[in-house]
Amino acid sequence: MKTKLQRRSVQASAVLLTIAVAAGVSGCQDSRAASVDSASTPEVNIIVGGLEKVIYMPAKLAEGLGLFEKEGVKVNLLGEQSGATAENSLLTGNAQGVEGFYDHTIDLQAKGQCITSVVQLANIPGEAEVVSTSKAGTITTAADFEGRNLGITSLGSSTDFLTQALAGQAGVKSYTPAKVGAGQTFIAAMDNNGIDAGMTTDPTIAQLVETGKGKVMIDMRTEEGTRKALGGLYPAASVYMSCDFVQKNPQTVQKVVNAFVGALRFINSHSAAEIAAKMPKEYANAGQALYEKSINDTKTMFNKDGKMDADGARNVLSILDKYSTNVKGKGSSIDLSKTYTTAFADKVPAEK
């Protein structure tokens, strides 16, 4: 009989196979996108690992503020609930960029792919481990994950990586990762006892706490909480693209980065209410006040300049090398200089 960890290994292998197939067809797709810079108005598809998640709000905010249009680039924002699914779209050439966690660039390099973060939106995850209120008395630290059902968006997602890290640091030998997505599917899984605890973001966190269904156990929405949980910064939300696309289309990439940094500046200089007013109305489906609270609880995670913290990048590699199924043991072969660049953020015009 397979143990939980063995079953997990089989599941992870299936994900790797999917990525390998995607990578195999990526060559011809990339060549079609190589001349984007030559268009009068370049067009770029960016997959977002959850458009409604507050940690990824710079994309829709940039759109709402008209920043892409101002830069002269047409950006199509396409939503996915998982970063793992989003990266497949990038590898197959169906998208030119992903707004997702930086750790995917390291994970993909371990699989032979060159992906780089062109603008770093945050140096902390903006995630929290939320425990079901009914289990809060028995699950108080990561050490209590042993034998539990833990919610993640999907296998191979950043919530999966972070859960592996928290469990590994606590010496947990076995738990069951449960693919429950985000938002209402995550809440339903907790309502139905499908998960005992799980890794999620705002506005889901705010909804669970407000309704009394969940309690925040490990909070990585602040620098202090992130350092306590992970021993340092953990650069997370970013926009990453294939190295080939970046090299062939620097003008288009610069336009995209300019727009995202513009959104970061708006976040850092405006109130949660002012930010919420620029976001799609349907994102406040649990009420405007709660949505504004979720933005306020998370907004301090965002960078002001779109640049990577180098020590943070090294910490991400160190954590993945110890606890990630895909990266473990390969850390010494990872070239961090290929996983991110500050070249474009360095060239963003100063605020007027």
Rank of each mutant, 00 (worst) to 15 (best):
L5G: 02
Q247I: 03
V209F: 03
T185M: 05
I124N: 02
K173N: 09
A142G: 06
T339C: 12
R221G: 08
K278M: 06
L78S: 15
A178G: 07
I19W: 15
S269Q: 07
A259E: 00
D321F: 00
R148I: 01
S174L: 11
K281L: 12
G262D: 02
V256R: 09
A343H: 03
V44A: 11
K281N: 13
D297V: 01
A273F: 02
A20Q: 13
A12Y: 10
A289H: 01
G112H: 06
Q120K: 06
D297F: 01
K248V: 00
T141N: 14
M241N: 07
Q207D: 09
L108Y: 13
D321M: 05
I295M: 12
T200G: 02
A259D: 01
F266S: 00
V246A: 14
I139T: 04
M1L: 08
L264F: 02
G27Y: 15
V180M: 06
G126P: 04
N315H: 03
A313E: 03
L317K: 07
T341F: 14
K278P: 07
S154N: 08
R227S: 10
I115R: 12
A167P: 08
S134D: 12
L91C: 10
G72L: 10
G194V: 14
Q120H: 09
N249W: 07
G232E: 10
N315G: 07
K4C: 02
M308D: 00
S318P: 00
T298E: 08
V75R: 04
I106G: 10
A165P: 08
F101S: 15
I106S: 04
K293A: 10
G50D: 09
G50M: 07
S337I: 04
L78N: 13
M1A: 08
Q254N: 10
D30S: 15
N258F: 03
A23Q: 15
L16D: 13
Q288W: 00
N88F: 09
L150S: 05
E52N: 11
T133H: 09
V44Q: 10
A276K: 09
M190Y: 00
E52M: 05
M308K: 01
G168D: 12
K215C: 06
D309F: 05
P280R: 09
A189K: 04
G312F: 00
Y283P: 14
G27V: 13
A284H: 08
L150K: 06
L290Y: 06
A189D: 01
D335P: 13
V21D: 14
Q29W: 12
K255E: 00
T41G: 12
G231N: 11
M217V: 05
N192A: 14
Y340K: 01
G66S: 02
F245S: 03
M190L: 02
F145D: 02
A12N: 12
N258H: 09
G262V: 00
N45M: 04
G97A: 12
A22T: 09
L162V: 14
D107N: 11
N303W: 00
K53T: 08
T141A: 15
N193G: 03
K70H: 09
T298V: 05
T85S: 12
I319Q: 15
A272P: 02
S157Q: 04
